[in-house]
């Protein structure tokens, strides 16, 4: 028993020492929450724009920014711009902050799922314009 306690103490001490010497140990989680949320926003933007483009011919045509590629240009670039722009804004807003990481990550996951559903043909074709 005493041997096991000594081992546990030593292991805990080694881990604590290791933790203290690791790079980035005390970095705030705000920038990470910002990156995850931005990933969710970019994905959701792509999913929503893809579904809206199916529902409205006018909107779909407005996404045709480069004729050889068609409306996919606008969809892909809106998703990409939404990702990088929201990352920039959230990155500044959450810089140096410690946040409730699970809450941000849960919202990011919900947005990611919106992106996955919105880009699935069996879903977005439900909204196809006549």
């Amino acid at each position: 028993m005493a041997v096991r306690n000594a081992r546990t103490d030593r292991s805990a001490a080694e881990q604590a020492e290791g933790r203290a010497t690791l790079e980035g140990h005390d970095r705030p989680n705000g920038p990470v929450a910002a990156a995850l949320l931005a990933g969710g926003i970019g994905s959701a933007a792509l999913g929503v724009v893809t579904t809206l483009a199916e529902a409205s011919v006018g909107f779909r045509n407005s996404l045709n920014w480069f004729n050889p590629v068609g409306p996919l240009t606008g969809k892909a670039l809106i998703g990409t711009i939404a990702f990088f722009l929201s990352w920039l804004i959230l990155g500044f807003a959450l810089r140096g902050k410690e946040v409730n990481f699970n809450r941000y990550a849960t919202i990011a996951l919900i947005l990611l799922v919106i992106g996955l559903i919105g880009t699935f043909p069996l879903f977005f074709e439900l909204f196809a314009a006549e």
Binding site: G24, V32, A35, G39, L46, K75, G79, F101, T119
Partner: peptide, 30 residues
Amino acid sequence: HVGWLAPIAATVVAFVVSYYGSALAHRLGE
């Protein structure tokens, strides 16, 4: 359409690993 989600998610992962470095080992949730 769905292919465009891959680089977004991959970029987020690369950033988080670079940001925390080896301290990520102690951050189970992240």
